[in-house]
Design a protein around this nucleic acid. Structure first.
Length: 975
RNA sequence: GGGGCGAUGGCGGAAUCGGCAGACGCAGCGGUCUUAAAAACCGCUGGGCGCAAGCCCGUGUGGGUUCAAGUCCCACUCGCCCCACCA
């Protein structure tokens, strides 16, 4: 990710504001959005807030005061749960029984503990005599860390208590944390864990900071892979998909995330796609959905259309049979996304990575220039787009794309055979062949001529495949003197070259253009050796001779600006902006997708299905094997429907929608997945939206992330949603590759299955490993060996926290240092959570643990400082390793749950160093270190440095030329 | 061709403003414990010279700015990503 290149800790420009001096964070966001739909609150400028420390802290622990029904339930439940008093431990026998009750089938690993087996035997001998132990965490105390047992135990308890239910609570600031929903491909691998586990940790962190956090999950369930699997294995796509969901749901739960499962949404559920259809209709009503002939990728062997992602490789072959894909024209539904092109280029309200913004900007590809109307000799208008209207007088020929609609009309009989042959050849070529840059340009003269509107010059019309029908207007004016492609073409086919921009001679470059000779006139063709692209003075340009042009585009160029004004006055052209961005083609000739809810009537054309008849259900009994037609078209009855206008028998649209349509609004469905009066419950919308933090892969930069922005803006204009952007803050994680450095994929066999590793190391060790092993934004190749590191660390945490035997009396200094380290770590961990720097969160916690081990050796156990250290440590551990933190928290006798505790506050006074060690450099080399008081003045430091024996030695009796004291950093002496 | 990002030990990576490079961890080596292994624990671990104290070199390459550069500037090399006959 762009902003995280070299200095991961560097602040991103729009990221949360932090006051450098105090470490305080400014609240930058209003907690709750004013409701009032319809009233356009255009100025809802909300800078992204990651956290508002002052707002959420300071008033005690906000988590104590729970108000939501679910939370109340938790609170009362926790209270009513019978508690074993720590001071009155149960007899050993009972304890062992409880262990047994809570840990179903404890792995062998924990069995051989001295003394224990005996107790267990007692239980087995006289089970009836023992009171059933209350199911409580306290009893589960065990000497060795057994992640699997505590993880499943706590997961069950959290679930039962509804600990992660997120309900509207107006007394708390909300935080909508969203992670990209998984596609239902079958198995959850580390590609899924990698964004999710750290996102979960951060959501938990936000929650501890007093936010009411919504962190939902769902499944992107429609799409081609399901259909392909169905074709391959003969399983119905629906069956395959829902079976996968079940498995993935189970796997997601083992991750120990705080997902609110009550809000799960599945895009293939009729309750979901009903609203996907409804949205289509709203866009249709807005005039944003339209039908047009368009070329699609078509496999002539499978006899079916293919989606872009099904066309593989450089030579563009069908993913199933390997046949080269061809283009075929079909009537398709489009969304007018280009209407929002300019608005989509505006990222002012977004805290998104620069990289994504750049990708979207390039993808939209805005270029400024003019559109100019040339004419055929017969008088037909030929619109062209040019970024260089200042070179209009140098247009010596025109080039049409072979598919241009006027080609047939302008072609003369003499040229017809040649033109037809060229057209046929171009049609056969794949896009890649055609667009290969290094390919020599080819073309054919049509025999026709066009009239240049600026000077009435009669210029020949050619066709060539370097002109694309898909960009601009499919026709160009060719100015060989000032365009490299046109130049090459003119040279090859011996077409005239007229210079119209002459570089201004400078003392250094008397003849700076590509012309071989400065004296030579541009009017003489062949004088130029290359096209000249730069700035200069217009020549051979009628009224504009002598006008200066610079190398800017659009109105910033005086020459271009003047010509545009002139064109507009004469009515032959106008200022114009062209985009590379295309309208969104949403038709898929496929079965497994949301039906497009439209009906075609001979008399009334296309009309939407009446909204009270939604959803248009996808029938189960279809032939989904590829036949060359949309599967729904082949269904005997499905497509028959009455015209919504006249009621006469009519035909449904049998294409389905692109799955990106489903995922464009899933964040809205999470708000109220069971709601049936609309796509979402307005109250939920008003409280939760917009998404505050969105995490996911950068591969969606120009797809999902652009579609969803378009979609939101379209819905805004339809009065359905508010605000200009759906997701305020975006953070991209990198990609986890297979151990071999290749992308993880089933076909390569380098996919690492989390299930096995969970069984081996436990979820907490895996979660923390994913956070620790890479810079989150970068990712990298998988290496299972490294898990030993975090696994060992958690075991060491366990050991230190469960062994309370080494009580001692540590000197005050030791305790003070411990406290300092704790608060320094807290400061750093807090900052790193804010900045998504997960790897240094873990390393800081590891360091602190090492310090605590030292403090234990020094006898700190039992002191207040030690207790505080333990408490803060577990709170910091809670977001990253939720299970072990909860277990140890409960073993310390603290109130359930650690996940409802308030994030601790840094005691800046305690965190402050009192003595600091400064390196002393002599001529740039470190020669000594001095220890001074942390707030020693410059003079004090200077004299301490100069009196050092070692420094004296290096000074060799000479007086220092210069002594630089960098406060709290170092001393530099120049001799 | 255009644009973006990156390059730090055997490996993953640390290094707020230009201020002790290599934190933390993996792997490796040596040791303690053990009948043994595993686990755990302790120590070493960028390179070179040296018995040692210590000295020199070192953040892709070459320059520059500075008392001081992994960090800033210029030029380059390599790698990855995106766009690409874009008119």
């Amino acid at each position: 990710m762009a902003t995280a290149k070299k200095k991961p800790n560097k602040k991103k420009p729009a990221a949360p504001k932090r006051k450098t001096t105090t470490g305080k964070v400014k609240p930058v966001k209003k907690a709750v959005k004013p409701a009032a739909k319809g009233k356009k609150k255009t100025a809802v400028k909300r800078t992204v807030a990651v956290k508002t420390k002052s707002a959420i802290r300071g008033k005690g622990a906000p988590t104590r005061k729970v108000s939501s029904p679910a939370a109340k339930k938790i609170a009362s439940k926790a209270k009513s749960t019978p508690k074993v008093k720590a001071k009155k431990p149960l007899p050993r026998v009972v304890k062992a029984a409880a262990v047994k009750a809570i840990m179903p089938a404890p792995p062998k690993a924990i069995a051989p503990v001295a003394g224990k087996p005996k107790a267990v035997m007692t239980v087995e001998e006289k089970p009836a005599a023992i009171q059933p132990a209350p199911k409580m965490e306290k009893a589960a105390r065990d000497v060795s860390y057994n992640p699997q047992a505590i993880e499943s135990k706590w997961q069950a308890k959290w679930e039962a208590d509804g600990l992660y239910r997120a309900v509207i609570d107006n007394r708390k600031p909300k935080h909508y944390a969203l992670t990209m929903l998984p596609y239902t491909s079958g198995d959850l691998h580390f590609g899924h864990w990698y964004p999710m586990a750290p996102s979960d940790a951060r959501a938990r962190f936000m929650r501890m900071n007093g936010y009411n956090v919504l962190f939902p999950i769902g499944f992107d369930a429609f799409g081609l892979p399901a259909e392909n699997a169905a074709i391959k294995r003969g399983i119905h796509p629906k069956v395959w998909t829902y079976k996968n969901i079940e498995n993935m749901r189970r796997q997601l739960r083992t991750m120990g995330t705080m997902f609110d499962w009550e809000r799960e949404a599945i895009s293939a559920d009729p309750e979901y796609y009903k609203w996907t259809e409804w949205f289509f209709i709203q866009l249709f009503k807005q005039g944003l959905a339209y039908r047009k002939m368009s070329a699609v990728d078509w496999c002539p062997n499978c006899n079916t259309t293919l989606a872009r992602e099904q066309v593989w490789g450089e030579n563009r072959v069908c993913e199933r049979c390997g046949t080269p894909v061809i283009k075929k024209d079909l009537e398709q539904w489009f969304f007018k996304a280009t209407k929002y092109a300019d608005e989509l280029l505006n990222f002012d309200e977004l805290d998104w990575p620069e990289r994504v913004k750049t990708l979207q900007t390039n993808w939209i590809g805005r270029s400024e220039g003019a559109s100019v109307i040339f004419r055929t000799e017969a008088g037909d208008p030929i619109e062209i787009f040019t970024t260089r209207p200042d070179t209009l007088w140098g247009a010596t020929f025109m080039v049409f794309a072979p598919e241009h609609p006027l080609v047939d009309k302008v072609t003369t009989d003499a040229q017809r055979n040649e033109v037809e042959a060229y057209k046929a050849q171009a049609a056969r070529q794949s896009d890649i062949d055609r667009e290969a840059v290094d390919k020599e340009k080819t073309g054919v003269f049509t025999g026709g001529y066009a009239i240049n509107p600026v000077n009435d010059a009669r210029i020949p019309i050619w066709i060539a495949d370097y002109v694309l029908m898909s960009y601009g207007t499919g026709a160009i004016m060719a100015v060989p003197a000032h365009d490299e492609r046109d130049f090459a073409f003119a040279k090859k086919y011996d077409l005239p070259i007229v210079e119209v921009i002459r570089p201004e001679p400078s003392p250094l470059h008397p003849s700076p253009s590509g012309r071989g000779d400065g004296d030579e006139s541009g009017e003489k063709e062949g004088g130029m050796k290359a096209a000249y692209i730069g700035a200069g003075v217009m020549v051979n340009s009628g009224p504009f001779d002598g006008t200066k042009v610079n190398d800017q585009k659009g109105r910033k160029n005086p020459g271009i600006s003047a010509v545009i004004d002139w064109l507009e006055q004469r009515g032959v052209g106008k200022e114009s902006v062209n985009y590379r961005y295309r309208d969104w083609l949403i038709s898929r000739q496929r079965y497994w997708g949301a039906p497009i809810p439209m009906i075609y009537c001979e008399a009334h054309g296309w009309n939407p299905v009446p909204e009270d008849q939604l959803p248009v259900l996808l029938p189960d009994d279809v032939e989904w094997k590829p036949t060359g037609e949309s599967p729904l078209k082949l269904h005997p009855t499905w497509k028959n429907a009455p015209c919504p206008v006249c009621g006469e028998p009519s035909t449904r649209e049998t294409d389905t929608m692109d799955t990106f349509m489903c995922s464009s609004w899933y964040h809205l469905r999470y708000l109220s997945p069971k709601y049936d009066m609309g796509p979402f419950d307005e109250a939920e919308y008003n409280y939760w939206m917009p998404v505050d933090t969105y995490t996911g892969g950068i591969e969606h930069a120009t797809m999902h992330l652009l579609y969803t922005r378009f979609f939101h803006k379209a819905l805004r204009d339809a009065g359905i949603v508010e605000g200009n952007e759906p997701m305020l803050q975006l953070r991209n994680q990198g990609i986890i590759l297979g151990g071999d450095g290749d992308k993880m994929s089933k076909s390569k066999g380098n996919v690492v299955a989390p299930d096995e590793l969970v069984a081996q190391h436990g979820t907490d060790a895996l979660r923390t490993y994913l956070m620790f092993a890479y810079r989150w934004q970068e990712g990298g190749p998988w290496n299972s060996q490294g898990i030993d590191g975090t696994s060992r660390w958690l075991r060491r945490v366990w050991t230190l926290f469960t062994d309370q035997t080494r009580l001692g009396a540590a000197p005050d200094e030791t305790k003070r240092i411990l406290r300092r380290r704790v608060h320094q770590t807290l400061r750093r961990v807090t900052r790193d959570f804010e900045d998504f720097e997960f790897n240094t969160i873990i390393s800081s916690l590891m360091e602190l643990l090492n310090e605590m081990y030292k403090a234990r050796e020094a006898g700190a156990v039992g002191s207040n400082e030690w207790k505080e250290a333990q408490e803060i440590y577990l709170k910091m551990l809670a977001p990253v390793a939720p299970h072990v933190a909860e277990e140890l928290w409960s073993q310390l006798g603290k109130p359930y749950s650690v996940h409802q505790q308030a994030w601790p506050k840094v005691d800046e006074a305690a965190a402050k160093e009192d003595m600091i060690e400064l390196p002393v450099q002599v001529n740039g080399k470190v020669r000594d270190r001095i220890t001074v008081s942390a707030d020693a003045g410059e003079d004090e430091i200077k004299s301490a440095a100069l009196t050092s024996e070692t420094v004296q030695k290096y000074l060799e009796g000479k007086a220092p030329k210069k002594v630089i004291v960098a406060q709290r950093k170092l001393v530099s002496i120049v001799v």
